[in-house]
Design a protein around this nucleic acid. Structure first.
Lengths: 362, 362
DNA sequence: CTGAAAGCGCTTACAG
DNA sequence: CTGAAAGCGCTTACAG
């Protein structure tokens, strides 16, 4: 097992110096400090509790924490399953709150007695992940992707199925297909956007930026999106929503507007969990097994820290899947070059003149 | 600060004996062991990491863990906020997996270096909570209620607002009101059931056990419930669902059956988070601020362990609230003694003869 | 900035 | 079953 003594030996310094480096004592040269911390990471040093060694994996958010949303909730569930076999406990850390300014990430994590850390990140705080990777502290970033070769990550690949989803809408006969995404830049949403554009390109449908909507990913954002769409002069006949809450909010607003899905508007959603089954009609959606991301990340990390010395990197991309449910159908009005043929099985309902027209039921 | 030395002094034994008691060494009499552990709890002993004292609060499930569901997810969010001020980290523990059979709860938690524990429990594993309370280890049970006076808990009171909700349905003119609850006994659901019954009693409406449904609390459970109701000879005109997933599943199934809510059926749901806004029509519901349960529990516990010696118990009940949205209206057919008067603002839609009648849209 | 040595909090053979 | 004492892993004045 790793101890200050072993680190001291390897570094050719006294145990005092090792202790000082670990505890960020100012009386250590920056050079020896970083050499010692690198060795500490390579031998998998952990603080002891009394005489026992701890068995904790940390979970940290490099930006705003978001444990309440369904995505992180699913990640957490997967993580707990992944830690189970090796009997690790999960310690939820608050980097922003507790990390001292002049302390390295390694020092912080060692002070918190975690042997490895699972990271959730945002576009603006990605460099925290690469910094941790450069320090060589055991880590996996969940649901991001990095060029930087020492950064371990696992993410979902949604570009391809996004393209497939839009292909499917095109095959049904849709030509005016809108796309709704998060208002702040996000790699996942960019992937989906790329899939959307490349499907249009392949089908030789001109890209129209007026059909791209950026909204806050909330139910209200989805409702707003639907209001915008129905007030357009020439509305789209189908929309691909790159986020579950956007899709759910939009579908419910459609009900209020008296707009029939999929008859008058086809909707493809994105699903991180099982939100697609929580509305009527159930959503055709590109789906991601979010718990699997957490599970695989946690399992890899327990192995990584269990085997002592470094063993390889994790750079993994899990496939999404495309699921056809009840929210997609051929468009009401056939457009030029339609592939599908729509056989109406009921009276077509005219779209309301104004959005509020059919909003109130009693 | 608490140390083995201090505990030894108070107990009138050597530090060796204290150490043995804490580590569950067999060579300590049961009597001295429990005396020492009681003192350890009363002085707030925690294992040290190196020379530092740890600042962890544990979260443990006495039964099946359920971190993935929206309820626990909301609890967790509140807990994190509650731990923030005192700068505690949360350690998610697995009691079933890691607690040794012959080890006390206090020994287990001290081994895990947590200074207090937040508990989530089930009807079958409630005694674990009272056992922990009897050991006097700092704890709060979240969302349960105990007669046992040393058990700290915080829960929501949903009986009264459940009664109010059913009163409201009665005031709208409903007389045949069904109730749907969890299939396994659960105190929360029993509370809501009591509220339902007492509202009926007050209005002198005979209780009819055929209108009480016990289902698994899932979307599918809600759908099944709706199938059952529509196949009844004399279906209810309103239903109170004691669970969010049941309500959401039922509302979506109603859409599939072509059953109009609230025109043909009024629905009152229960909401732990914001599920009531995720369906159409938005649900009239009895609502609980679940994050607040976690927040208050965590805040109290940090104060309890922060102040060293024991200071009081926590026995707190947070009120729910009743929120009227769009899923409730007067019944179509007025029954004897109705209070409200239903002014229809559209063509009444006949209930389908068979459930599948209107199920498929394309 | 570093090491040798004293010391702290705890654990654990050893003795009874 | 218990304590006195040795020991472990770490930290920290002290000296240079």
């Amino acid at each position: 097992v790793a101890s200050v003594r072993k680190i001291a030996e390897r570094a050719g310094v006294s145990i005092s110096t090792v202790s000082r480096a670990l505890n960020n004592d100012t009386a250590v040269s920056a050079k020896t400090r970083s050499r010692i911390l690198a060795i500490a990471n390579s031998v998998g040093y952990v603080a002891t509790v009394g005489r026992r060694t701890t068995n904790n994996i940390g979970l940290a958010f490099t930006g705003e924490s978001s444990l309440a949303d369904p995505f992180d909730s699913a990640v957490l569930q997967g993580v707990m399953r992944g830690l189970d076999e090796a009997r690790f406990d999960l310690s939820i850390l608050n980097l922003q709150r507790d990390k001292e300014r002049d302390e390295t990430y390694t020092q912080f994590f060692m002070r918190k007695s975690v042997r490895g850390v699972l990271l959730r990140t945002t576009a603006e705080s990605r460099d925290v992940c690469t910094d941790i990777a450069h320090e060589a502290f055991p880590h996996v970033v969940i649901s991001e992707r990095f060029e930087e070769p020492s950064t371990n990550f696992i993410d979902g690949e949604s570009r391809q199925d996004s393209e497939r989803a839009v292909d499917y809408l095109i095959a049904l006969g849709h030509r005016r297909i809108a796309f709704a995404m998060h208002n702040v830049s996000d790699r996942d949403h960019e992937d989906r956007f790329e899939g959307y554009r490349s499907a249009l390109a392949t089908a030789k449908i001109a890209f129209d930026s007026r059909l791209v909507f950026r909204q806050r990913c909330t139910l209200a954002g989805g409702a707003t999106m639907m209001n915008l769409v129905t007030s357009m002069g020439r509305p789209p006949t189908a929309i691909y929503f790159a986020d579950p809450l956007l899709a759910v909010g939009a579908v419910n607003r459609a009900h209020e507007l008296g707009l029939s899905i999929p008859r008058e508007l086809s909707v493809v959603g994105f699903d991180d969990t099982d939100a697609r089954f929580s509305v009527h009609p159930t959503l055709t959606a590109v789906c991601q097994d979010t718990a699997a991301l957490g599970f695989e990340a946690a399992l890899w990390l327990t192995r990584r820290v269990g085997n002592g010395p470094t063993n390889g990197t994790l750079r993994r991309t899990l496939p999404t899947f495309f699921e056809i449910n009840r929210s997609t159908a051929p468009p009401l009005v056939q457009t030029e070059g339609a592939v599908g043929l729509h056989e109406s099985d009921g009276d077509p309902v005219a779209a309301p003149e104004t959005p509020d027209d059919a909003a109130t039921v009693h």
